[in-house]
Amino acid sequence: APALVRPAHARATTVTIASLLGEDKPETKIWRRVADVVEARLPGRFRFNIVANGALGGEKEVAESVRLGAVQASLSTMSSLSGWVPQVQILDLPFLYRDAAHVRRVVEGGIGADLRQQLAEQGFIVGGFIDYGARHLLTKQPVTRPQQLRGVKIRVIQSPLHQKLWSAFAAVPVGIPITETYNALSTGVADAMDLTKSAYAGFKLYEVVPFLTETGHIRASGVVYFGSAFWSGLSDEERGVLGTAVSEGASYFNQLIVDDEKASMQQVEAGGGTVFAPEMPEAWLEGAQTVWGDLADVVGGMEKIKAAQGA
């Protein structure tokens, strides 16, 4: 084979980016936008290789690949990074945040700055915080009060935080991969689960768990991030351009999610799904606070949780 060893700066730097979902989803659209913006400002400097559809693995595998240098940037929910920085779970604490604006204030304040610092120490350079929307309770039978969850088999993700939350309501957690969830719910391996509205519609889960209770118990927060080895190899100018593009991209992503939720709920209603408002907020909060107590030491103390609550 002809060996042409050229100096590295003579060609575009390849930036491999992993997206979990397809081209039409916010998870991929954000990177198309970032790539366009960067190309306009620094023509020919970077080649963005955006690999969609989860072809490079799930969130946690992608984060591992970023640390080992096979992927340079991606999006992640907080829980997938909690193995490296347990403190990120403060953004996942149930019934702590009232709405998206509340979360925004927290990540733009001192707590967000601390998290950026802690993630950077673990090799993840945060380009911006993102909001995937709130997780809601999805059930086969209407559930508006926590007592109704007693003994209900609920599909949970592999996260102690989530498992503790549902155990606090005496539900039975069952671990099922998301691809098998539709089947498991339709056959009764599980009777309930929780998910964001977009994903609820995306997986057509309203066909098997037609009742959505707007608990909004966990606001699914995440970050857009770069690997630190890649980041530290960039010039100041490149960092400036990429950083701005990604920060703008994060806002774009958040807007896409809001729009997507609206469209998703129209699809859910047309598909026969019913939306309920939760009752007895203090009972929901009571269960959630056992999780706050369990995780207080991990996320930086109860004062920090109270500070986030009051932000």
């Binding site: 591992e64 490296w84 090799g123 592999q158």
Partner: peptide, 11 residues
């Protein structure tokens, strides 16, 4: 990997 990966399994 032992040196580079870091992280603790939350579960």
């Amino acid at each position: 990997i032992m040196a580079l990966l870091g992280g603790t399994s939350p579960a």
